[in-house]
Amino acid sequence: MKVTIDGKEIDVPKGTTILQAARMIGAEVAPPAMCYYSKLKSSGGYCRTCIVKVTKGSTANPTPMPKPVASCRTEVMDGMVVENFTSPEIVEARKGIVEFLLINHPLDCPVCDQAGECKLQDLGYEHGLAESRYEFERREFDMIDIGDKVKLHMNRCILCYRCVKVADQLTDGRVHGVINRGDASEISTYIEQVIDNEFSGNVIDVCPVGALTDKTFRFKQRVWFTKPVDAHRNCPTCSGKVRLWIKGEDVLRVTARKDQWDEVEEFICNACRYDHKKKSDWEIEGPSPVNRHSVISQNQYAHLNQQKLEQLKHQSALGFMKIDKKP
């Protein structure tokens, strides 16, 4: 099936969603997604950041769709034409969505463990407005422990439902869900029950914001001061393929490996995540690929940045270009 997204055409198999097709084309046309997670069934459709405009339904029925659609849950039709970043209407609408997501978010990034690898920071930076027009009190919840290793900081939650899907699909016996409704909705374990099983720690990895954090890592270190390396071990429960976050000789944190779209490649078990925090427990494969634009890379390649800055200064002095862009 042929689909055109922002003027770029691609051939995809039947059943592909617009978002998947856009990701196949590349990051330059892929809509941001806060709740969609390709590894979890029936995820997506909630956050509405991935909305796009379908200007031509299909070759057979070219009528445009009347409203913007959630690209993560809309399957492509043959001959469909989609506008994402090229539609000013969508760019504007997305700004609105980002603003909505942020009005009740505490913006406590300076004390939040997710800072630096937070999808909401990226989203706000790339697609949001410079300042909020919201002037009221933000909703507040008490922090609660979900089990002895996971902290739920509900104030930061954007209700993407990813952790609910993990609890539903990866672990036996659903004890994790959403209670209350509207802007009073909150993620909760049913009547203070803990998630007690081998894969529960994955809720931390799928959380796009700092709502679910690893209690064994909380306040230990800013992520950009640690260095990610890929490692593996022989694990009887999971694949054992993980990412270690190292500072000096210490393994501060163990997470699953994430791909280009910040999605977990393979879910890992709690034993790998919490109980093996020595370098000697692991066979280290090498440094993890880190996106050049990520703040995590900044610290790793500080010397390169310095070199580049020197070079730019030099060029600028010669009248080539101005240093108003980040190196």
């Binding site: 209700l159 439902y161 509207g182 802007d183």
Partner: peptide, 21 residues
């Protein structure tokens, strides 16, 4: 509408409360 929003998708969850305020 603020009271009755289900809270599933963000524009309605956050927007209805904002409009009320």
């Amino acid at each position: 509408y603020h009271h009755e929003s289900c809270g599933q998708c963000s524009p309605c969850r956050e927007g209805t409360g904002w409009m009320e305020k």
